[in-house]
Amino acid sequence: MTLLRCRGLRKTFGGHVVLDGLDLTVDEHRVVALIGASGSGKSTLLRCVNLLEELDDGTIELDGEDISDPRVDPDRVRRRIGMVFQSYNLFPHLSVLDNISLAPVRVHRRPRAEAQAQARELLDRVGLGTKADAYPDQLSGGQQQRVAIVRALANSPRLMLLDEITSALDPELVGEVLALVRELKDDGMTMVLATHEMGFAREVADQVCFLDGGRVVESGPPERVFGDPTEPRTRQFLRRIIAAGRL
């Protein structure tokens, strides 16, 4: 079943075209990896899907509902979508537990005790059970990013958007975050992830989309896109990635 369908997305920032008629379809329980150079529109696409940016043209459907319709309440849409950012964006004034239970308590009106119990359960699952009362600045980058993922999961989202979630991490901390994403995939979570980790994209994604100039230039199973790309621009990009030792 199709969960997310983007058609002809266009987004400009001050005369600079970032998305230029982009199409993307994501089926339920599938993991789609967006790859491409910086500025190719990966992050903008994710921010548009989460209605953090206003589209200049095109439509986005979530579960068959046109969420790019201005009459749609964006808060209601965002409750169904979890987003994780490159720089974690945890709330520095709240403990780990409060970071996670804030939305369940305030948005979903769940009793605080119940929300906190669920938060502790999720933290235990990702191996951070002892950090519930810590503050974000007392955690390593990898731990913060895992908390950010848990915070998004606490809303029980239908779709997870991961925006280069390992780019700000020290290399030795990347593994623990990717392991968590792998677990989410095994649980059947639908995910769209923008990433520079080609090895990870190859391993975890069901479908890889190469973005260039604000469009999906090439898309398909990872073996094909990485092993036998048909588009010259994809080949050029992959050659540079290999030259940089990232694949």
Binding site: L52, M83, F85, L102, A103, R151, N155
Partner: peptide
Amino acid sequence: SQLAAARSLGLSYRQ
């Protein structure tokens, strides 16, 4: 980015 994180969790502007 703090606003983006809060809004992405479904919190309203007031919240």
